[in-house]
């Protein structure tokens, strides 16, 4: 795991979410991979002590970005960071992309929309048709959808887009040979159910992590016969692998 102190290039408020972009110092960034990030401390912050996992939101011309919502001490400190943040090397396994598979549906729930931005960019670059469906609690969190041209939006309180879950904003997922999703486990389980067993179905899980490099075994998800680490074997899994 490589640790970097990176300069913040820009920050944007997207409704309830914040986007921080920074010059990426490491190796190739791929959709679905993540970094562990935290506010800089000397030599570490003690509270919170651990870094937080964040998917790459976007990557262009050497500048990477991460999207977050202030939920606790760690994200509050990130929100206040003005000059630098600490990030680790790109971690985990990202989305499999198969140009021959056909049309893709991208579904995001809440802050789980994050990896879909860079994924959509990659699919477009490869000429793969795709539709984007984003679900949120309310209009405040749904504001990030403005950054996803052509996306269909749903909110649980009906304050923006379709009233309901992300699945209420999407057509029959069985029609899509490829489905990608990221969001809370309950949403991913519902997507897995709705998308059926055929085709390429990939889910990016959001788990609490300790180390991010496979060492602590803290971020496991259930699979047949036990648990696997979402930081190394994931965070993107084929839907059929997850024992939900």
């Amino acid at each position: 795991m490589k640790f970097y102190t990176v300069e913040i290039e820009a920050r944007r408020e997207l409704g309830a979410y914040t986007l921080i972009s920074y010059r990426w110092p490491g190796e190739k960034v791929e959709p679905g991979r993540f970094v562990m990030a935290r506010a800089a401390g000397y030599p570490v912050t003690l509270d919170p002590f651990l870094a937080r996992p964040f998917s790459f939101y976007d990557f262009e011309d050497g500048v990477a970005s991460l999207l977050f919502e202030v939920r606790g001490r760690g994200t509050a400190l990130l929100d206040r960071a003005t000059r630098t943040v600490e990030v680790t090397a790109p971690l985990g396994r990202g989305f499999e992309i198969d140009a021959s598979a056909g049309r893709a549906a991208l579904l995001g729930g809440g802050i789980g929309v994050a990896p879909l931005k860079i994924l959509g960019r990659e699919l477009s670059a490869r000429g793969i048709d795709h539709d984007v469906f984003l679900g949120f609690l309310d209009a405040g969190t749904a504001a990030v959808a403005d950054d996803f041209a052509g996306a269909s939006v749903a909110t649980m309180d009906g304050s923006a887009g379709t009233h309901g879950t992300v699945l209420d904003a999407a057509p029959d997922l069985l029609e899509y040979p490829v489905v990608y999703a990221c969001g809370p486990n309950a949403m991913l389980a519902a997507v897995k159910d709705a998308a059926g067993p055929d085709g390429l179905r990939q889910l990016s899980v959001e788990e609490r992590m300790g180390c991010g490099n496979g060492s602590c075994n803290g971020c496991v998800v259930p699979v047949d016969g036990g648990y696997v680490r979402s930081c190394v074997e994931g965070p993107v899994f084929r839907a059929e692998v997850l024992a939900w």
Partner: peptide, 13 residues
């Protein structure tokens, strides 16, 4: 197989 999640929680320091 180990324990079911959650397995880690952050605490001060």
């Amino acid at each position: 197989a180990g324990n079911p999640p959650p397995r880690v929680a952050e605490t001060p320091a």
